[in-house]
Amino acid sequence: MLFSQMTGRIVVDPDTAETTAKVTGVRIAPSPPHITHITALTVDADGRQRRLPWPDIHAIGPDAVIAKLTAVPAPPSTVVETDPVGKVLLTETGRQLGIVQDGEFDEADGHLIRILTAGTAVDGQELLGAGHYAVVVAPVHHL
């Protein structure tokens, strides 16, 4: 599944069957390359950003994400969590490969399969870090 296919999908509470939020993005991390959580905007009047840790997601279906939206504390300040889409894709040698446009992951276990730019697909295994400015990958094996 692509990040872009996930974005905008509704989040449904498995107990109440209520729509609680809409997915706004994903967060990725290396070692091993995976989705740490998805971010979602609550549909109540407050409209707050919430984090859905990957283990708390029951299912990702074609129409909805089934997950219990619990209050997740803000991450420690040392942990950088930003959406990889729109970031510069850099190799660890400082060469820019493009702008991250999308990514592909395994919806069964959150494993990152590929990072996609306009002209390049990079193996998710090459991910070294994803920060505020860039997504950094090891010297590249194009897919």
Partner: peptide, 10 residues
């Protein structure tokens, strides 16, 4: 030129 960490921070 930007100085960037391996974790992607400028």
């Amino acid at each position: 030129r930007p100085v960037v960490t391996l974790t992607g921070d400028h």
